[in-house]
């Protein structure tokens, strides 16, 4: 299962610029991650490295990126170097003033995590009372400041019955995009998978509904990042690669500079401070394996395998220990 085109360097870098957080989410993948942070000088050096590698965009995450000292200065530098700069935030610290500062710092897009249209459900899930209202307010302030906004929702047991409600919330918030993230079993997500994750047949039903909504709803992009939807005739035409994009189009940098294929795969393939980025990208055995997965089990006889390439590598690795296994969310042959 090989991809036709692997770019000569990552197109996007997701960067957990800090792991500090003011929330206590039930599915957090980074709670137990290192608290070590790089100093400003090293951050600027890394930005230069990414610029030389012709990376298009940097998406800051964490943790809560707004808790990183000098975030605005870092974003300004990144923007001046020509990167498209974005971030994922819980929105709690974004008021009108902060939205203006983010715009000035060069943020082109900001995604806010909201997991339910019901405030009490979201607040309980995120562990902070009032967080839903603050997130909705943040979207308003960001839009007012001229920043493109999106909502990120992790699909799981708490919101599976309210997918239409999530879309309505996105429409009323006038965001450009709603990202339906599949549930990843990393960090607390792994510990809480039995109470939060869906069954394969529930995933199938969710994607059928989400695809219907995507075709029906105007003025809102509904992003579904999951390769297993190729079984439903969705070919992922928006990307140049098949299967997971992690390690093929993007890389993840942790707060201490460690590089992983994505934020949900805890395999460190190098460190951006000490190792050669291009050498990692071109020679890492882990990335090579991710780009050349060998179909196993039910994938062998699946008509969608050339598009799906075994599904989400992070999820498969976390739940089965072997990235070549079929995606545990896949509903093929399930009844």
């Amino acid at each position: 299962m090989k991809n036709d085109l692997i770019p000569s360097s990552p197109l996007t870098v997701n960067w957990a610029i800090t792991n500090k957080c003011n929330f206590a989410c039930n599915h957090c993948y980074s709670r137990s991650d290192t608290k070590e942070e790089l100093d400003l000088e090293m951050v600027f050096t890394i930005l230069d490295t990414l610029s030389r590698a012709k990376v298009f965009s940097i998406n800051f995450g964490g943790g809560e990126p707004l808790l990183r000292k000098n975030l605005l200065e870092i974003a300004r530098r990144a923007s001046d170097l020509g990167f498209a700069v974005s971030m994922n935030s819980n929105g709690y610290l974004i008021d009108r003033d902060m939205a203006g500062k983010l715009k000035e710092a060069g943020f082109a897009k900001v995604g806010i995590s909201i997991d339910s249209p019901q405030p009490d459900i979201h607040d309980n899930f995120r562990g902070i009372k009032g967080s839903h209202a603050r997130a909705i307010e943040a979207l308003k302030y960001l839009k007012g400041a001229g920043i493109e906004t999106s909502i990120s929702s992790v699909i799981c047991k708490i919101n599976i019955e309210d997918v239409d409600g999530l879309v309505e919330m996105a429409l009323s918030s006038e965001v450009a995009n709603i990202n339906f993230h599949n549930f990843k079993c990393s960090g607390l997500g792994f510990a809480n998978k039995d109470i939060l994750d869906l069954t394969p047949l529930e995933w199938r039903d969710f994607y059928i509904r989400a695809i219907e909504l995507r075709k029906k709803v105007n003025g809102l992009r509904i992003s579904l990042e999951d390769p297993i939807i190729s079984q439903l005739g969705e070919t992922g035409e928006e990307t140049l690669v098949k299967g997971s994009v992690c390690g093929k189009l993007s890389l993840n940098i942790k707060s201490n500079g460690d590089i992983t294929p994505c934020g949900f795969i805890p395999i460190v393939v190098g460190n951006i401070c000490t190792d050669d980025l291009m050498k990692i990208w071109n020679e890492s055995p882990v990335l090579h394996k991710m780009r050349n997965k060998e179909p196993q089990g039910k994938c062998l006889s699946c008509d969608s395998k050339s598009d799906c390439l075994g599904g989400c590598t992070a999820r498969t690795l976390a739940l089965t220990g072997d990235m070549n296994n079929p995606d545990p969310h896949c509903w093929k042959n399930e009844s």
Partner: peptide, 14 residues
């Protein structure tokens, strides 16, 4: 042979 990549509106082109 793809010799350049364009990224626009969440869509990629070679």
């Amino acid at each position: 042979i793809g010799t350049s990549i364009i990224l626009h509106s969440g869509k990629m082109h070679s």
